[in-house]
Computed example of a mutant assay.
Amino acid sequence: MLQVPGLQNCGIPTKVLCQLNMVMPEELVDDEEIWEDIKAECCKYGSLRSIEIPRPINGVEVPGCGKIFVEYDSAAECQKALQARTGRKFTNRVVVTKYYDSDMYHRHDF
């Protein structure tokens, strides 16, 4: 099984949720609506502290591009979001969710 640093789908919940398979990097080039859509969907599960959506930059490999990171006020809220969002569809894609290490998130180590 491939292990990605910072991602964990079991064990102790963190305050940060990483959502994969929601958007493709090319969809992030000039779509500002995505942020509002993510915020509206994710705030249903708790208070949001921050959202990070790494976007592509021409000629530069951007770590985490295509992933969506959402930080909640508590690990319990994040756990609630993970349980609710896993397997849901977003733009005809099945969402994959994982807890993400809070320290790595704050360092923008995506």
Rank of each mutant, 00 (worst) to 15 (best):
A84F: 09
F90G: 03
K89T: 11
N9C: 07
Q83F: 08
R88M: 15
Y105W: 05
Y100N: 04
Y99V: 07
D73W: 01
Y99L: 04
G64V: 05
D101T: 06
A40Y: 10
E52V: 08
K67Y: 10
F69W: 05
R88W: 08
L82F: 10
V4R: 13
V70R: 12
T91G: 00
I68Q: 02
D101R: 03
I51Y: 06
C42W: 03
R55S: 05
A75Y: 00
L7C: 12
V94A: 11
Y45Q: 04
Q19W: 01
D73H: 12
E32L: 11
T14Y: 09
K80T: 13
V95R: 00
V29R: 08
W35Q: 13
M22K: 09
C78Y: 03
E71N: 02
R85E: 14
P54I: 07
G66E: 05
R85V: 12
E26M: 10
P13I: 00
V60H: 00
G64W: 08
R49V: 14
F90W: 12
E33M: 12
V62E: 09
G87N: 10
E52F: 04
V29P: 02
R88L: 14
I38C: 02
M22Y: 04
R85Y: 00
Y105D: 04
I12G: 01
C42D: 08
V60K: 06
F90H: 11
Y45A: 04
Y105L: 02
I57C: 11
K80Y: 09
T14F: 09
V95F: 02
S74P: 01
P5T: 07
V70T: 15
L17A: 13
N58R: 13
D103T: 13
Y105T: 06
D103F: 12
I34Y: 02
S50E: 09
Y105M: 02
F69A: 07
L20D: 10
H108Y: 09
N21H: 15
L7N: 08
I68S: 01
A76V: 11
V70Q: 09
D103S: 13
V70G: 10
H106I: 01
C78L: 08
A84Y: 08
E71A: 09
E33G: 14
Q83S: 14
K15I: 02
Q83D: 15
S74W: 04
I34N: 00
A84D: 07
A84V: 06
Q83M: 13
I38L: 01
P25Y: 08
G87R: 05
H106E: 10
G11A: 05
V60D: 00
V95I: 15
F110D: 06
Q3N: 11
I51H: 10
Y45R: 04
P25I: 08
C10A: 07
S47F: 03
T14Q: 09
K15A: 12
P56Y: 09
D30P: 00
N92Y: 10
T86K: 14
C18T: 13
C10D: 03
R49C: 13
D101C: 13
E33I: 01
G46Y: 02
G11P: 04
V23H: 06
R107Y: 03
G66Q: 06
C43Q: 14
Y105P: 01
V62C: 05
P13A: 03
E61M: 11
S50I: 06
G46P: 01
